[in-house]
Design a protein around this nucleic acid. Structure first.
Length: 194
DNA sequence: TATAAGATTTACT
DNA sequence: GTAAATCTTATAT
């Protein structure tokens, strides 16, 4: 059920971003298990992608986790208040990452409601900053292994049907010039279970 | 040391 | 539709 190391090592990060749709993201923080179906992702393709923090092979304390081998978390703080969660992919030394933009909540909904301060199910995890807060993911966890016992992914047999996936340009990266229009964003048009 | 900007969210006009 | 909140990181003195 839990995704093993080799699932993260494909060096085609765009393909992986699409493949992660329908998988389950699980966190075990402060003794609380929370999870959701991944319904929106974006690919950030290594040192040649102007939208990526690793563009131009820019190594730093912040981007170091992206250079680890696939199967680690890259989490950073944006706008001073939101932690954004990425899955590091590809072999060590290749800073590919997949940003998780939205989930459909499954387990630990009460905990997520408390952390978010709202009780609207479909707004709990519908943005990258929101889902991190709901799952208790903090940027201090950057570099954490996804094969450990804090954050991991599972395959529960959900396969998005052909036609249920939308592809488009990434969001809020106007600074990335021509790379801002690359079709690296994937959306799984999941029918919410009520 | 100082400054600018950001892979966002929220509230308000 | 626009703007404020808020702070780390990158880049430049």
């Amino acid at each position: 059920m839990r995704l093993s190391q080799d699932h993260y090592l494909d060096d085609d990060v765009v393909h992986l971003a699409k493949w992660f749709l329908g998988k389950i993201l699980v966190s075990n923080i402060d003794g609380q298990i929370c999870s959701g179906i991944i319904i929106e992702t974006e690919a950030y393709a290594g040192i040649t992608d102007k939208a990526s923090h690793a563009y131009g092979d820019r190594k730093s304390t912040r981007t170091d986790p992206m250079y680890l081998m696939g199967g680690h978390a890259y989490i950073y703080l944006i706008y001073g208040m939101y932690s954004l969660f990425n899955i590091v992919t590809g072999p060590a030394g290749e800073p590919h990452a997949v940003l998780i933009r939205a989930l459909w909540p499954l387990e630990g909904i009460k905990t997520m409601e408390r952390r978010r301060g709202i009780k609207t199910l479909n707004k709990l995890c519908d943005g990258p900053g929101k889902l991190s807060k709901a799952l208790g993911i903090h940027y201090s966890l950057s570099g954490e292994s996804l094969l450990g016992d804090r954050i991991w992914l599972e395959d529960r047999g959900i396969e998005p049907e052909t036609g249920s996936i939308s592809i488009g340009p990434r969001i809020n990266i106007d600074y990335a010039e021509e790379d801002a229009s690359q079709p690296y964003r994937f959306l799984y048009k999941h029918q919410p279970i009520t």
